[in-house]
């Protein structure tokens, strides 16, 4: 087992502070995008991230924010590497991240569907068991598969009538 050096630990803490530009209540660590932080030599940090969606426009911002935060914390050289495999899944959002989403009024994702083997055709709207993050009622209905961002669907609570976003399982 390799012991984490204090410098690595510090770099990790800084990297973990960086938040998602679209979901600012979530750190990249809670989102599961931050895969690894390592320090090579004295102050060269290597960060591995896994993209959420292939064309997610937030990825460039996340990358720049990581470089900016780590550079500001005194690390001379910051290298952000892309780790494509395994592909990101909403299952990687941590329990703390899920709690933060719910606290912000966003319904966290359920378990992601399996994507091994051929993926069967689905002609019906995606059925999800979504609870209202405001009142906790299970009586909710889908308004639109796309909410404030493409990775969220919009729902409405038929109990308290509040609309809310739900992070889609992928």
């Amino acid at each position: 087992m390799r012991l984490m050096s204090r410098t690595t630990e510090r770099a990790r803490r800084v990297a973990e502070r960086v938040t998602d530009p679209e979901l600012p209540m979530l750190s990249l660590a809670d989102l599961g995008v931050l895969r690894d932080v390592d320090v090579v030599g004295d102050s060269h940090v290597v960060v591995d991230i896994t993209p959420t969606y292939s064309g997610c426009p937030a990825m460039a911002a996340m990358r720049d924010d990581l470089v900016h935060e780590l550079t500001s914390a005194g690390f001379d050289r910051v290298e952000v590497r892309v780790s494509l495999h395994p592909a990101w899944t909403t299952d990687w959002i941590t329990p703390a991240g899920r709690a933060a989403l719910a606290a912000a009024g966003i319904s966290p994702p359920g378990p992601a569907p399996s994507t091994s083997g051929p993926i069967p055709l689905s002609l019906l709207p995606t059925a999800r068991q979504v609870r209202c993050p405001q009142c906790g009622s299970p009586a909710t209905e889908l308004v639109s598969e796309f909410g404030s961002t493409a990775c969220k669907a919009q729902y409405r609570c038929t109990e308290c009538l509040e609309p809310f976003d739900h992070v889609k399982e992928i």
Partner: peptide, 18 residues
Amino acid sequence: EDDIALSNIALDLLGQAR
């Protein structure tokens, strides 16, 4: 909704293209 859906499909494909 379909505007956003189609834009999202285009965005996914652009990400794959890159």
